[in-house]
Simulated scan of single mutants.
Amino acid sequence: MQDFLQNATENNSTDCTINHSIHQTLSPTIYIFVFVVGLPANCLSLYYGYLQIRAKNELGIYLCNLTIADLFYIFSLPFWLQYVLQHDNWTYDADLCKICGILLYENIYISVGFLCCISIDRYLAVVHPFRFYQFRTIKAAVVVSIIIWGKEILMSWFFFKKVEISKDAESHTICFEHYPIKNWEHNINYYRFFAGFLFPFFLLLFSYCGILRVVCKSHGTQKKTKIQIKRLVSSTVVIFLVCFGPYHILLVIRSLFEKNCMFAGKIFNIYHFSLLLTSFNCVADPVLYCFSSESTYQNFVKMRDSSLTCLRCLKTKTKVSYQLKTPETLRKSSSVPVDEEPELLNKLHTVNEMKDFSTH
């Protein structure tokens, strides 16, 4: 009897007529925005994480992993863009649909995992600067990163084997979704809500509340710095709630009440709007954790100056190579000051030894 009901539910999913208007209006705009802005921003963020790793800062490991997860999702956006523009009709291979779906959904939890790692790392650095040092090393960060990726790869393999391609009433191939949701998805959605969102949120909140308590009691911290720290902490919590909160709440609502096509049709637009909100995390991460730091701004200014200096050097060398090597020109070329060497090359090895909050 149970098998019959399950088969009936699966068959009904092919008869659901869903209004996909949100996918022809809002989704393409957001996908294009996230791709155009997120791709260069995350590439620069990856470079910043590399600088942190060279400075023996474990934060760089978490930033690089967070950025790589965002880039994986960004690279799948062109496929999703074509999918929504074709009225939710997947025209590529079924396995590619599963891969893109995994990159979309699992990026959420990989990002959440590394956001928690960053918050805990900052908490330990500010609240317990001389304790738990063994957890704030490059080696520890690598081990934690392997655990996070390993856990999500196992979950991805489960979805890859479980998810099947379905068709709607218009014979369109639906990618990575079912209307209404299947029975096995209910427990997965509860797990996503409690373990993938609620627990990490409380962990994030605990870490940043501890940081704020220490900062507010610190008499040596300047008022301007305190304000910057408070803004960064509040922005992180708000963006976490805005990007991931609505989606996970609607996951639970769907698991509790979505039993037929009527409810699936009513909740479709708001559910997919919440899913679009998770995409903004790929843009918010570089802004919050990289570009908000004053030292990051200085590093990119140095990189720009060094690039301009290198271009001037190349032009000078090209011009000199076509000139006659007279004693006068040799004397002029030999008098080029050593100070014109790119400043970034001299200072990449001396990133701030003092790990202030902005880089933690």
Rank of each mutant, 00 (worst) to 15 (best):
E10R: 15
N12F: 14
S13W: 01
L26T: 06
P28E: 11
Y31F: 15
V34L: 04
S45H: 13
G49T: 15
Y50L: 14
L51E: 09
E58K: 09
E58C: 12
L59N: 14
Y62K: 01
Y62I: 07
Y62F: 15
C64H: 07
T67F: 07
I68K: 13
I74K: 03
I74Q: 04
F75C: 11
L77G: 03
Y83E: 04
Q86A: 13
D88T: 02
Y92C: 06
D95V: 07
E106V: 07
I110C: 05
V112P: 02
V126D: 06
R131Q: 13
F132Y: 14
F132H: 14
I138Y: 05
S145W: 04
S145K: 05
G150P: 01
G150Y: 10
K151D: 12
E152Y: 00
M155K: 06
S156R: 00
F160H: 13
I165T: 09
A169F: 08
E170F: 10
I174P: 03
I174M: 10
P180G: 00
K182Q: 15
H186C: 04
N187I: 04
I188P: 00
R192Q: 13
R192G: 08
G196P: 01
F202S: 01
F202K: 03
L203V: 12
L204H: 12
L205Y: 09
S207G: 03
V214G: 02
V215A: 11
G220M: 07
K230D: 09
K230N: 14
T236N: 13
V242L: 13
V242W: 06
G245P: 07
G245W: 12
G245F: 04
P246W: 01
Y247K: 06
H248T: 15
L251H: 10
R254Q: 08
S255W: 09
L256A: 06
F257A: 00
E258A: 02
K259S: 13
N260W: 02
M262T: 15
F263Q: 02
G265W: 04
G265Y: 06
I267Q: 03
I270M: 07
H272M: 09
L276R: 05
L288S: 12
F291P: 03
S292M: 01
S293F: 03
N299G: 06
K302C: 08
M303Y: 13
M303Q: 08
L308W: 11
C313M: 13
K317P: 01
S321Q: 11
Y322R: 14
P327E: 11
E328D: 07
R331Y: 15
K332I: 14
S335D: 14
N346C: 03
T350F: 07
V351S: 12
M354Y: 11
D356S: 10
